[in-house]
């Protein structure tokens, strides 16, 4: 058994695909019709055969209150690894991405938290290189 998928609940799959590919830089992997929605996944170009991120519709009535409560307390839904948090922060901020937490050293890890415009906060984290 292995983990091959992770998912984020998004309020709009079209908007989400644009943000996760054009802004964050992921690539579309799978796009299949699935009823009213799509089975839509993206992967990192650094690991195209790696874990796929499912951009999952958040239409279930329980999801909205759940997402809003997490966002209100600043809790990221998931976390992505980057080699340089400060550089990613600069790149994304220049692209208009809003951060709730700028790059901050948290013990051995540096993290930052941004708004994915689809109703989630996402953390980026880098481990020390040495």
């Amino acid at each position: 058994m292995r983990i091959n998928l992770a998912s984020v609940f998004v309020d709009d799959q079209v908007k989400a695909l644009a943000f996760y590919t054009e802004v964050l830089g992921f690539e579309k992997k799978t796009d299949l019709p699935a009823g009213e929605a799509r089975w839509l996944t993206v992967v990192s170009p650094e690991d195209p055969d790696g874990v796929e991120l499912v951009l999952e519709p958040d239409g279930h009535p329980a999801v909205g209150p759940f997402k809003r409560a997490l966002v209100a307390d600043g809790i990221p839904y998931t976390s992505f690894a980057v080699s340089d948090v400060a550089a990613e922060h600069a790149r994304l901020a220049a692209a208009g991405v809003a951060f709730t937490q700028p790059p901050t050293a948290m013990g051995p890890v540096t993290t930052a938290v941004f708004d994915d415009t689809c109703g989630n906060l996402i953390q980026i984290a880098s481990l020390p290189t040495d």
Partner: peptide, 12 residues
């Protein structure tokens, strides 16, 4: 946010 303060307390 509450999250950032929690992480600061735990990690730092």
């Amino acid at each position: 946010t509450l999250f950032e303060l929690c992480v600061r307390l735990i990690s730092r």
